[in-house]
Amino acid sequence: MGKVNLAVDIQGLRLDNPVLTASGTYGFGLEYSQIVEVCKLGAIVTKGLTLEPRKGNPGKRIFETPAGLLNSIGLENPGVESFIKDYLPQVKDLGPKIIANISGNTIEDYIELAERLGNQAGIAALEVNISCPNVKAGGMAFGISPQMAAQVTKAVRKSTTLPVLVKLSPNVTDITEIALAVEEAGADGVSLINTLLGMAIDINSQKPVLGNIVGGFSGPAVKPVALRAVWQVAQKVKIPVIGMGGISTWQDAVEFILAGATAIEVGTANFYNPQAPLEILAGIGNYCQERGVTAITDLIGLAWKER
């Protein structure tokens, strides 16, 4: 039997395969390139970039719960200028397409970030984070209102010719409402889910564990929630959906694709299994081969599409 075609196209963002690494869990790809064949990845999504450098949140930033991880990093990053000058020259030689994840406090921030990154060789697309639970201003504020989500999307869309993905928060009543709003505003795709808002309390000190009190919850524990969100959104929008949330194995990834994801991102799993993205890639290929599926795109949404 012939080789399975794993390539996917997200409105002009052509990827050799649908396995990406999620923002904030892969840095800029340089560290993991020492132990993982990162060149095989479909794409690397960068740590969330802001206009100015950000030092992140004080106090304890990570805490493990059963099958899950709470984080309150607070978007620590060197800022877009340093990224372009100090990291991008190396990062763009890693091999995979680079998707820049951006976060702003105001619409103007997002516009400036899109303009700065839009004309950089080596950036293949933007992933607009309107769903970070760890910063006070902006971030998630844009992601919980369909009007504001649409405004940000429209503004970024106008400021760049790169494909624009909008990353959605699960911390909303109806995620499909936000997805439809950003589609209408010109998004080329939606990425979901960002982390769920959570917390933990230290029973000895009787105080919240995290310095920021609340944090973003990720890892295997969130997978059913993420899968449900992808299932709902993929049936409502026409643009591609990039699914993530707890994906650790190829079986998880196949579930997301069957739920309607065109591509998937591996996040927290990198921490406990740096080989997870490549194991997932191989596993997806075998799954298709065994079932006589010649193109991965034939699997997208099969769980709900009428056959």
Binding site: T25, E31, Y32, G56, R61, I62, E64, N71
Partner: peptide, 10 residues
């Protein structure tokens, strides 16, 4: 979480 400077948690 990661041990290699990626998660920025430590």
């Amino acid at each position: 979480a990661c041990g290699i400077g990626v998660c920025l948690g430590c």
